Amino acid sequence: MSKILVVDDHAVVRQGIISILERSLSRAFYCAEAGTAGEAEAKLSQEKYDVLLLDLSMPGMSGLDLLEKLHRERPELRILILSMHPEEQYAVRALSLGASGYLTKESAPAELVVAVNKVLAGGRYISSALADRLAEYLLSGKETGLPHEALSARERQVLVMIGAGKVPKQIGAELGISEKTVSTYRSRILSKLGLSSTTEIIRYAIKHDLIS
């Protein structure tokens, strides 16, 4: 029997995913759920899972940070990203950090089932649009060289949220961190991108299509 762990900070989303799998997944499976990175790590320490369905936006440790940590500590664990963020923002990075696939939450339920089946079978799942983007990335033979590529996963999340016009209080509440910590990330972003103000961060995010 396959064992799947669904990690998302919204209980309704977790239950929706599990419901889709229960209706449509052809193989026998057991499904558990976790609402934070800490809960996910606790469950993984207690039981062996075949596939982790992981959201990127969670309070505390981000999904990308958890992905990187788990891939380093448990390279045999298959991790399928299921995120609200469009592929152009995070998919290539997630795959480079060890993800076995990337799906947006706007994907049809049937696509989720296909992706889970493929990952459970030991394969990788990417959409045709992402396949084209990956081909361009590989054929270029080098990184894009854009300054935001050097940001950490959390710094990039904060960059996108600032670019979308959110203030530190909103960002802190959504990410489960303090306003002071948000300000620290903002300072790092300004330094790494060579910018001097929030307005310039917003312009940068718009220019590079980082806002969904």
Rank of each mutant, 00 (worst) to 15 (best):
M1T: 10
I4S: 07
I4M: 09
L5D: 13
V6A: 14
V6G: 05
V7R: 08
D8Y: 01
D9E: 06
A11W: 02
V12T: 11
V12M: 05
V12N: 04
V13G: 08
V13F: 08
Q15C: 02
I17T: 12
I17N: 03
I17F: 07
E22P: 00
R23T: 05
L25A: 02
A28F: 07
Y30G: 06
A34F: 06
A37L: 06
E41T: 10
E41H: 01
K43A: 15
K43F: 12
S45R: 14
V51T: 03
L52G: 01
L52H: 02
L56G: 09
S57W: 08
M58E: 05
P59L: 06
M61H: 03
S62W: 00
L67H: 11
K69W: 04
H71F: 12
P75S: 07
P75K: 08
P75C: 04
L77H: 06
R78E: 13
I79R: 03
L80F: 11
L80Q: 08
I81C: 08
S83H: 10
M84N: 04
E87L: 04
Q89L: 14
Y90T: 01
A91I: 13
A94M: 02
L95M: 14
L95Y: 08
L97G: 07
L97R: 14
E106V: 08
E106T: 07
A108Q: 08
A115C: 00
A115K: 01
N117K: 09
K118Q: 14
K118H: 05
V119L: 03
V119F: 03
G122Y: 12
G123W: 13
R124V: 09
Y125W: 09
I126F: 13
I126N: 10
S128T: 13
A129S: 15
A129C: 02
D132Y: 10
A135E: 12
A135F: 12
L138C: 04
L139Y: 12
L139V: 11
K142R: 15
G145F: 05
G145E: 03
P147Y: 03
H148R: 13
E149N: 10
E149D: 14
A150V: 14
A150N: 14
A150Y: 06
S152Y: 10
A153S: 15
R154T: 14
E155N: 10
R156C: 09
R156V: 05
R156E: 15
R156Y: 15
Q157T: 07
V158H: 04
L159C: 09
V160I: 14
V160R: 13
M161N: 06
I162C: 05
G163D: 12
G165E: 15
K166A: 06
K169M: 00
Q170F: 01
I171F: 05
E174A: 15
G176E: 01
G176R: 02
G176C: 02
I177Y: 00
T181M: 03
S183P: 00
S183L: 09
R186C: 04
R188F: 04
L190C: 06
S191A: 09
K192L: 12
G194F: 01
G194I: 01
T198R: 13
T199W: 02
E200R: 11
I201H: 06
R203T: 08
Y204A: 13
A205N: 04
A205Q: 06
I206Q: 15
I206H: 14
K207P: 07
D209R: 15
L210P: 11
S212I: 00
